[in-house]
């Protein structure tokens, strides 16, 4: 089984150590690097090309939102999960529009943290449908998201994929989509993987963001 390579970005050593400790309990995850500022993070991602970046928001020398924006522009295939003290939906919205795949609080449980990483890696959603809808509505009214400009001409989605993408933007889980379309969960999963590939995004969240900001569903 391929391990998931992770970079931890946080200016506080105790938090980096804590996260490292929590990730070390999962053999499928390997921490390949640590950065203490946004600038360091951008540089490290360029050199190590990890699968996932765990990103703090409030940091000196480029905050986590700006760093995420830049990372997504240079490496759209890398997934960024915000790990922050801020439990305000506005930050979540900012993070998603900067290109984040997930958003957890720093006092997240070990189980939840590992689950979020696995979910993001397998094309699942971390956002509940309420939050997803709110986020996408605001994104639609803002008209664009960072990290979308660099995307090349994407392959056309099939009619079925469009159907799935629409339900993804409504915040439905794979299981719910499967029930709606009366297909198996495995089939939905495959559709979602294809959508992520074709849209040249890193994860399900950003697929939904792309659907809205590129006007794919209208």
């Amino acid at each position: 089984m391929k391990t998931t390579q992770v970079i931890i970005v946080d200016d506080h050593p105790m938090v980096r150590e804590g996260l490292r400790g929590m990730l070390a309990t999962d053999r499928a995850i390997q921490v390949v690097g640590e950065a203490t500022t946004g600038v360091e993070a951008v540089d490290l991602v360029g050199r190590l090309r990890p699968d996932v970046v765990l990103m703090d928001i409030r940091m000196p020398d480029m905050d986590g939102l700006a760093a995420t924006r830049q990372i997504k522009q240079e490496h759209p295939e890398v997934s960024v999960i915000m790990v922050t003290m801020y439990d305000n939906p506005d930050y979540l919205f900012q993070a998603v529009s900067a290109g984040a795949a997930g958003y957890v609080l720093k006092d997240v449980s070990r189980f939840e943290l590992l689950q979020t990483i696995r979910t993001v890696m397998s094309g699942g959603s971390f956002l509940n449908s309420d939050l997803m809808t709110q986020c996408l509505q605001r994104l639609a009214s803002h008209g664009r998201a960072a990290g979308q400009e660099g995307a090349g001409a994407p392959e056309r989605l099939t009619a079925r994929e469009m159907e799935v993408l629409k339900l993804v933007t409504e915040g439905l889980s794979n299981k719910e989509i499967a029930a709606r379309l009366t297909v198996s969960v495995a089939t939905v999963k495959t559709h979602v993987e294809h959508i992520i590939q074709k849209l040249q995004v890193s994860d399900r969240t950003q697929a939904a963001v792309a659907a809205v900001t590129r006007g794919l569903l209208s």
């Binding site: 506080h12 050593p13 105790m14 938090v15 980096r16 150590e17 804590g18 996260l19 490292r20 400790g21 929590m22 070390a24 309990t25 003290m85 720093k106 006092d107 449980s109 070990r110």
Partner: peptide, 11 residues
């Protein structure tokens, strides 16, 4: 600090 300690405890 609290967060870090809590995370270590979980680890």
């Amino acid at each position: 600090m609290l967060v870090g300690t809590y995370q270590r405890l979980q680890a």
